[in-house]
Design a protein around this nucleic acid. Structure first.
Length: 203
DNA sequence: ACGAGACAACCTCTAGGAGT
DNA sequence: ACTCCTAGAGGTTGTCTCGT
C-alpha cells in the first residue's frame, strides 16, 4: 500500500485542489495533476467539484477509504476480537478496569516525558511529539483562541469504534498531563465521522 | 473574458542490466 | 569495480479546451 507524499498531504490537510497540492509539494500543477490522476485510477483518492462563479468548478481531491488504509491501523482485527472477548467473558466493568489501568500508565509515562517542559506551549509540543511517535500524526496550531491539538490519524480507530472508553481515556490523559487548570475540549472526532480528531486547548 | 483543467511533447533523474 | 546504455517514473512547458 502506498503512503506517498500526496497521500500524506491529503491525510494531514484534508481535501485540497491540485494547485494547492502542487504548491505544498513544490511541483507544477500539471505534475501534481498527473500524479493525482494516477492515484484516482488506483482508487486511493477521489475528487469532488465545487462551483465558485467565473471559471471551471474547482476540483478538490481527498483520500478514499482505500487510501486511508495505507496508514497504520496496528493489529486492528486482533484488538477488536480481544476487546469483544473481554466484554463477553469478563464483562463491561472488567474492560473499563483494563482501560483505566492503561490510562494510569499513560498518565505516568506522558508526565515523565513532559517533566522538562515548563510552559503550556512546550507541553503541547512535547505531547505532539509523543503522539506522533505513537502513530497519531499529531500537530498543533496556535491561534487567537489558544491552541488546537490535531491528530490526523487514529491508529486505534478499530478499537475506539467498538469502545469509546479509549477516547474518553485519552482525553482524561491530556487533561492530566497539561494541567487541570487548562480547559480541553474535543472539537473533531474521527469516530463521529470527522477526518481527524482535534482538541481545543485554552488557559 | 477569465480561471482552471487537459493534453502532448519533451526533459531529468534513477535504477537495473550488460559489457569491460 | 567501473562505465555505458536503456527504460520508466516523475516533472516542466506551451497550448488548447471547457465552464461560468
Amino acid at each position: 500500500m502506498k503512503t506517498n507524499r500526496f497521500l500524506m498531504l491529503l491525510k494531514t490537510r484534508g481535501a485540497l485542489t491540485s494547485a494547492a497540492i502542487s504548491k505544498e509539494l513544490g511541483i507544477t500543477s500539471e505534475g501534481a495533476r498527473l500524479q493525482l490522476l494516477k492515484l484516482t485510477e488506483e482508487g486511493l483518492i477521489q475528487s469532488t467539484h465545487e462551483s465558485k462563479g467565473v471559471g471551471r468548478p474547482t476540483q478538490y481531491f481527498s483520500l478514499t477509504e482505500l487510501g486511508n488504509k495505507g496508514f497504520p491501523d496496528t493489529h486492528a482485527e486482533l484488538t477488536v476480537k480481544l476487546i469483544q472477548q473481554i466484554k463477553e467473558t469478563l464483562g463491561e466493568d472488567a474492560l473499563q478496569t483494563v482501560i483505566s489501568a492503561g490510562e494510569q500508565k499513560a498518565k505516568q509515562r506522558y508526565s515523565q516525558q513532559l517533566q522538562q517542559s515548563t510552559t503550556l506551549e512546550e507541553r503541547i509540543q512535547q505531547l505532539v511529539n509523543i503522539r506522533t511517535v505513537e502513530g497519531y500524526m499529531a500537530e498543533y496550531i496556535k491561534d487567537e483562541k489558544g491552541y488546537l491539538l490535531i491528530e490526523n490519524h487514529c491508529p486505534i480507530c478499530a478499537a475506539a469504534q467498538i469502545c469509546q472508553g479509549f477516547c474518553t481515556s485519552e482525553l482524561n490523559t491530556f487533561k492530566f498531563v497539561l494541567g487541570e487548570e487548562v480547559n480541553i475540549t474535543r472539537v473533531n472526532h474521527i469516530i463521529a465521522g470527522d477526518r481527524r480528531c482535534a482538541y481545543r486547548i485554552q488557559n
